[in-house]
Design a protein around this nucleic acid. Structure first.
Lengths: 142, 142
DNA sequence: CTATTTGCAAATCATTTGCAAAAAT
DNA sequence: ATTTTTGCAAATGATTTGCAAATAG
């Protein structure tokens, strides 16, 4: 019972529970990847074909404002979304396949804070994306 | 004589030298900050009032393709540009003032490569921006 | 009941592009 | 002379918004 659903957390934060929000939240939670708005709309429309693009945008914005989802920019034009969990991670984008690899590195976390502090700042957030190609002998044909 | 101008480097790379490119390159080189396209257009128009927005976009794109300028995304909608020098640095965005602080951290550079390697990738690039507010007792009134 | 949310279509904003004229090599 | 670049204006693509009808609390 530790994990409240995205919808429940939004409700607890005061958001009204609508059928479209239910569907959008569920679609995002069921996404193992980092869908963009169109992908999310398509997935949510499997449950509610009448769902509008505007509602997806508005819902995602609301969830982002509540700090319940992360909005990412991975370099291509569109925003990508992901449910925000306690565990923090960053992303590496495979420039060959477009695949996104998540990783967590405590050393990196500490270093970011230390750098900000050195500059006289308190770290509030960051955006980090690594871009790389599979090293020889790994996943792709070289 | 070690430092070729942006324009010279573009010319050396085969780009045609036009008056508008001269003005755009000079404007970017004289910018101590990280101007967006509109700012750059405004600055360049001080020298050439007839300069078009499209030429600024096209020139920046060409310079970026030649790896002569960096294109940054600092979270607001627009792209920011900066002449690319040998020294590498990342950015911290002051969330209070919007000021951008540049920094370089060798430990961070090494760590990024190490993380990519651990995941089986060769690092090709990265985008990193830290967001923070001035720590108490520093630059701003708390 | 009253404030919020929805779908639609039109509006925005940054960026790109087609085209004919102008200019660089 | 040939190819590239320019300015303009129209096109694009992602995201936002005005509005009247629908709906959650």
């Amino acid at each position: 019972m530790l994990a409240l659903s995205l919808l429940d957390r939004a409700g607890a934060a005061g958001a009204k529970i609508t059928p479209q929000r239910k569907v959008i939240c569920r679609a995002l939670e069921c996404s193992g990847d980092h869908p963009d708005v169109d992908q999310l709309l398509a997935r949510a429309r499997e449950s509610d074909p009448g769902l509008s693009l505007a509602s997806v945008y508005r819902t995602l914005r609301a969830l982002e404002d509540l700090d319940l989802v992360w909005k990412h920019d991975f370099g291509d034009g569109r925003a990508r979304y992901e449910v925000r969990h306690d565990d923090h991670h960053d992303h590496l984008i495979d420039t060959i396949s477009g695949q996104i690899v998540e990783f967590h590195d405590p050393e990196l976390e500490a270093l970011k804070k230390r750098i900000a502090a050195r500059l006289g700042y308190r770290l509030e957030g960051h955006s980090l994306a690594l871009f790389g190609r599979p090293a020889d002998g790994e996943s792709q044909t070289p």
